[in-house]
Simulated assay, not measured.
Amino acid sequence: MAGVLDSVNQRTQLVGQNRLELLLFRLRGRQLYGINVFKVKEVLQCPKLSSIPNSRQVVRGVSHIRGETIPIIDLSMAIGMAGIPQEELATSFVIITEYNRKTQGFLVTGVDRIMNMNWEDILPPPKGAGKDVYLTAVTKIEDKLVEIIDVEKILAEVSPLREDVTEELKTRSAERVPGHLPVLVVDDSSVARRQIERCLTAIGMEVVTKNDGKQALNYLKEITGDGSTARDHLSLIISDVEMPEMDGYTLVTRIKENPALSGMYVMLHTSLSGVFNRAMVQKVGADDFMAKFSPDELAERVMEIIDQN
């Protein structure tokens, strides 16, 4: 598993085909969980952990890996289950990931395999699961339910990001010409949608949100059904990449091939590792890419885009 990213070039061919590869793993018990391989830097046997004074209980310690000091988060504990016992750490695994410009490890009890999947088979959590559930999606593999955890929700609780734009940017936004068209924000994570919406409303923008690419595409077709173009209704689109049913890359492809939508400015805004994204963004024809999540950077970039368009 340590060489899980050895064939990066092969995996980039999935871009725009609404496909992904899931690394399957287990926590405490037989339930399978999944994480997008593009977020995984390495999988290794749990290394020696050094404790951090006054850290959250869910952070089991830090480890020095490849010259970097990385916090190790007990994923079982993070989603409300009992943590992995100290005596089982030696036989456990750590999945080293990159989210939101930060590297962290997730402690799991077992790593299963990698599965090539279609995003159409990745579905939103069941209705009625509740707003506090730590799932962003579910799927079935060989009749077994696989749960995909909302890692952004976990990280927002373990290591909260600053969500507010600075007063200087608010002042600058107030000096701009009012009355801009809304921004469409597409993201399956409720935490990410809240963060982006809070950022944009702080600079005076109206925001429309959709939970995945399929919802967004249906909405775009609906508002342009009278013969208008998307630019008659929206300033720009900010879309996540990883989303159930239709991912962000496929959404961009569908937008750019539709004459009523193709003139729309689309920014991909993702927690996926920046190592791969530039080539992918070019491939699908997105207008811009930004790694999550810096409120000032996002606000500044949105103001620039709107002023230029």
Rank of each mutant, 00 (worst) to 15 (best):
D226K: 02
S190N: 09
T209V: 10
E242D: 15
V185Q: 00
S189C: 11
I255C: 08
N218M: 09
A216T: 08
V252I: 14
V207Q: 11
V207W: 10
Y219I: 07
I203E: 07
S189F: 03
L200K: 06
S190K: 11
E222T: 11
I237A: 13
T253C: 05
E197T: 15
G225F: 06
P244R: 01
Q195T: 00
T201C: 10
T201E: 14
D247I: 06
A216V: 03
D188R: 01
R193W: 02
L236V: 04
D247N: 15
P244S: 06
G248L: 01
S190R: 11
A192V: 15
E257A: 12
S239T: 15
R198C: 04
Q215N: 12
G204Q: 04
P259W: 04
D232T: 04
I255G: 05
G213I: 03
M246C: 11
V186W: 03
V208C: 07
S190F: 00
G248H: 02
E206N: 12
Q215L: 05
P259F: 07
G248K: 01
E222N: 14
E222C: 09
T229H: 05
E206W: 04
T229R: 13
S235N: 11
N218G: 09
D247L: 07
H233N: 14
R254W: 07
V183N: 12
T253L: 02
T229Q: 11
S235E: 11
M205A: 12
D232L: 07
G204M: 00
Q195L: 03
R231S: 15
L200W: 06
I237C: 15
I238H: 02
I238T: 00
L200Y: 04
M243H: 05
E245Q: 14
A192I: 06
T201M: 12
K256W: 02
L184W: 05
E206Q: 13
C199H: 10
D212M: 02
N211D: 11
S228K: 14
G225L: 10
I203Y: 05
Q215D: 15
T224D: 13
T209H: 03
Q215P: 03
L251C: 11
S235D: 08
D247C: 13
L236I: 09
T201Q: 14
E222L: 14
H233C: 09
M205D: 05
V186P: 06
I223P: 07
R193Q: 14
L200V: 07
R198N: 15
L251S: 13
E242L: 10
V183T: 13
N258D: 15
I196L: 12
D187Q: 04
I203C: 07
K221M: 13
S190I: 03
G204N: 03
R254E: 15
L184N: 11
V208R: 12
V252S: 09
P244T: 01
L217I: 03
K210T: 14
V186Q: 09
I255H: 05
T229A: 05
E222H: 14
A202F: 07
Y249T: 09
T250S: 14
M205V: 04
A202E: 15
D187G: 02
V191Y: 06
I203V: 15
H233A: 13
R231G: 06
V191F: 05
